[in-house]
Amino acid sequence: MDKRWWLAVLCCALFGSLKSQIITGVVNDSLSGHPLPSATVTLLAAQTNKTIKGSRTNDQGQFTLNNIPPGKYLVTIASIGYRKQEVPGVVVGTSKSPLRLKTVSMSKEQQTLKSVTVTAPAKLLDYRIDKMVYNAEKDLSAQTGVATDLLKKVPQVSVDVDGNVELSGSSSIRFLINGKPSTAFGSNIAEVLQSIPASQIKSIEVITSPGARYDAQGLGGIINIILKRNTARGINSSISLTAGTLLENGSLNVA
């Protein structure tokens, strides 16, 4: 019989053995025990810390990560107003049954000012039909740092150690300033985000399913940074941001 036929059969058998598995879990509030909806769940490779897949909990605090190949992973859970939790040593095999993680209980993040404990407001996220809005100006812990620090607080958004941003596991993102494209993002996006002071950001809008009015760029989603002071008027206008940033002159021109 033709050797090529046997080779094809062998390849099919090998590929068939490389099955994927589903990871499921539940996230709740550590004090009340109530389900925690809209928490961001991120799956990272244990050795490289690279983002593999992202998800978000539903109204019952449940999440599902589909089609995960065999390997060892780290699962992180983040939610506005709560301390970030990690589930290390998650081993995925070839079982057809879902891999169910233990319930993850999230503790609220607190900030102490002059011996007075202030709990971060619970309503920092606004879910709309076409987008999710993170109201940075209402977050007491978001008044310092830069845009990169705020993006780490946004559900479905992950930032690696080099400042590279991914949305639901995709790096194909289009960045906007006050709803308009900026030439500044045509260079090094990580440096630009490091140059925008968090104190000048009013909110961050995340659009995971861009409509027809957006071009092919940013198929993975849109991140729109809304500034507190909008001095951009027209396509050729500019916004001057001064904050002792990475740029030599301490200012960023985002025309």
Rank of each mutant, 00 (worst) to 15 (best):
K138Y: 10
F175M: 03
N164D: 08
V154D: 00
L125T: 07
V159R: 06
G145I: 00
A142K: 00
L125N: 04
V118F: 11
T119V: 15
D139L: 07
G179L: 08
L140T: 13
D139V: 09
F175H: 11
Y134C: 06
S115R: 14
V116I: 09
D130A: 15
S158H: 07
Y134S: 10
V133T: 15
L140S: 10
P121N: 06
S115H: 14
D160H: 03
V159A: 03
L167Q: 03
M132Y: 08
Y134T: 11
P155L: 01
V157D: 10
R174P: 15
T117G: 05
S158N: 12
L176I: 05
V165D: 05
V118K: 15
I173N: 00
I177W: 03
L176S: 05
N178V: 12
T148Y: 00
K138H: 12
N178P: 10
K131Q: 15
I173A: 07
K114I: 14
I177D: 03
A122I: 11
I173E: 03
G145D: 02
D126L: 12
G179T: 14
M132W: 07
G163S: 05
N178L: 05
S171T: 10
L140H: 07
L125R: 07
V157S: 10
D162F: 05
K180L: 13
M132F: 08
G145V: 06
L140D: 09
V146F: 03
Y127F: 11
A122Q: 15
E166N: 09
A147S: 00
D139M: 11
S115N: 15
P121I: 13
S171G: 06
R128M: 11
K138R: 14
T117F: 13
V161L: 04
L176G: 02
K131M: 13
N135L: 14
V165C: 04
S172Q: 02
L124S: 08
K138N: 08
L124P: 09
V165G: 04
G163M: 01
G179C: 04
A120H: 12
P155R: 07
K153N: 09
V116M: 12
P155E: 01
K138S: 13
